[in-house]
Each structure stands twice: as structure tokens, then as C-alpha cells.
Simulated scan of single mutants.
Amino acid sequence: MTADERPGGPADERPDRTPFEYGADGPRVIVTGVDGSDTSLRAAAYAWGLARRGGGRLVFVHVTQIASLSTLTPGGAEVMQEAAGEIVAELERDIRRAYAQAPVDHEIVTAHGDPYGVLARVADESRADAVVVGASTQAGHRLIGSVAVRLVRAGRWPVTVVP
């Protein structure tokens, strides 16, 4: 069988067959959660590569959890807000450096609340094709479930968990 006789070869020019386009069938909108942890930063780097190779858009999501105990102490909520602001500023610096090397269409969404709820809402609103998150390093999450496990159980998007 010659190359011209193989399916998809020059002899197979039927109008009902479209040519294969490498990279055109991947996720177009990718949502990734970033909390400043090593695993979330690895997840963000992985998601950046997916978006870059596939020509997709990347939505970074940073969620600030306001712990109930922090609001009971004087200035506790302010300290939590300040720490969240530092994480987002560092994320923006990292994104600018990455963008200079390999441009990717992206945006940063910041919100307060439950990380699972915010990630799910942003993924739904942005019509995400994929969600990428870092694996939890907290021992308690093995028992009660992590954000990643909750996203997988929701079953609304493909979820990649990066170690």
C-alpha cells in the first residue's frame, strides 16, 4: 500500500473527511487553582503548557479562605487579606516572566470563599474544557476529601491533579 492509497492520503480527498489538525482538539479554556503552594504552582505551570501548546485560554483562580478564627482576633482578617495580596502579586510577577518567554491568553480571578465552590463557579462561568489543580499536601484531606477530589466527584469537567 502506497502513501496515496492509505486512508487520509492524497488519494482520499473525500469532502466528508476533514484533515487531522495537531493540537486543535485540546482544551480551549483551562481553569487552574493557585494558592501559592508548590503543588499549585506546578499545576499552574502544567496548565500554562497545555494552553500554550493548544492555543487555549488560561484562567488562574486564587481563593482566599477567611478562617473563622482569624476574624475573632484583632487584625486577623487584615493579615489574611495581606497574605493573599502577596500571593497574587507574586503570581502576577511569575505570569509576566512566563508570558515574556511563551505568550498565553490568560486572566487572574481572585475571590473569597470556599476553594471548591469558587473553582466550580469560575469553571462553569468560563465554560472550561479542563480544570488543573495541585494535589493536596494536607494529611486531613485524605480522610475528608480535598478540593481536587471534590472537583473530580462533581464530574462536570476533566480534572487533572498535578503532584
Rank of each mutant, 00 (worst) to 15 (best):
M1N: 06
T2N: 10
A3P: 01
G9C: 03
P10L: 04
R17S: 05
T18S: 13
T18R: 14
F20Y: 13
F20S: 01
F20W: 15
Y22D: 00
A24R: 15
P27G: 13
P27R: 05
G33K: 09
G36A: 05
L41S: 11
L41I: 07
A43V: 07
A45R: 15
L50E: 14
A51Y: 01
G54K: 02
G55D: 09
V61L: 03
T64P: 03
Q65I: 12
A67C: 05
L69G: 07
S70M: 15
S70W: 11
T71H: 02
V79T: 14
M80S: 13
A83W: 04
I87H: 05
I87G: 10
A89M: 00
E90R: 14
L91F: 02
D94H: 08
R96Y: 06
R97F: 06
A98E: 12
H106K: 11
E107D: 15
T110L: 07
H112N: 14
D114H: 13
V118C: 02
A120Y: 05
V122H: 00
V122Q: 11
D124M: 11
E125W: 05
S126V: 12
S126G: 12
R127D: 15
A128D: 13
D129C: 09
V131M: 03
G140M: 07
L143M: 11
G145F: 11
S146Q: 12
V149F: 10
R150A: 15
V152C: 09
A154M: 05
A154N: 08
A154P: 05
A154L: 13
A154S: 11
G155L: 03
G155H: 09
R156G: 03
P158K: 06
V159R: 11
T160I: 04
T160E: 00
V161P: 06
V162Y: 02
P163T: 00
